[in-house]
Computed example of a mutant assay.
Amino acid sequence: MTSSISDPVVEKFVAAVNAGDRDAFFADVLTEDATMSDDGSERDLAAWTEKEVFSPEANGRMKVVDASDDGRTLVVDYTNDTWGTMRTRWIFTVAGDRVSRFETGQAPS
């Protein structure tokens, strides 16, 4: 595995999160019907990203530790101001130039 992201769509996702750019995240990164899950449970994408990523209380950031599956599976040290830093796994489904689904959760140790 490597820490460089070889999929440009996933790279845009990480960049939007790290920039705190909610507008780009929804307008340029995700498909209109994108879905997500957290630790195996389906979540409301807008509500989850607001709470865990974009709100001033969250201030989410992703530091990629490893990338595999052509850059569509990441192990990340994810940090937000609510929970601190945790090692997480992110799996992306890409449709064209957008993410149509992502699944996140605790990374196996």
Rank of each mutant, 00 (worst) to 15 (best):
R98I: 02
V17R: 11
A16Y: 05
A15D: 15
T93P: 02
A107S: 13
R89L: 04
L30T: 00
F102N: 02
D77M: 12
V76S: 09
V14F: 07
M36D: 00
D44T: 10
L74C: 05
M62E: 07
D66Y: 11
K63I: 10
R89V: 15
S68Q: 12
A47T: 15
T93Q: 11
R98T: 08
G84Q: 10
F25S: 00
L74G: 06
V53T: 09
I5E: 08
L74A: 02
V75F: 09
T31F: 05
S100N: 06
S3H: 12
T82D: 11
R89I: 05
T49S: 05
R89E: 12
G20L: 08
V29S: 01
N18F: 07
G84I: 12
R22F: 06
D69Q: 10
V99A: 03
V9F: 11
M1A: 15
W90T: 00
M62D: 01
G40T: 09
A16G: 05
D38S: 15
V10F: 09
A58Q: 10
D7F: 02
G60F: 07
D44P: 01
V9N: 08
D33N: 15
V76A: 04
E11F: 03
T82M: 10
T104Y: 01
V76I: 15
T73S: 14
E42R: 12
S41L: 12
D21M: 07
V17C: 04
N59C: 12
S3V: 02
M1I: 01
D69R: 13
P108K: 08
V9C: 08
G105W: 02
S55M: 13
R61D: 13
N18H: 10
K12P: 04
D44Q: 11
A95Y: 05
D77P: 06
A47P: 01
D77K: 11
V17L: 10
V99R: 01
P56Y: 00
W48A: 00
F26P: 03
G71T: 06
A58N: 12
E52T: 13
M36S: 09
G96I: 09
P56S: 03
A27C: 05
K51Y: 12
R87I: 04
D21H: 09
S3C: 07
M1N: 11
V17Y: 06
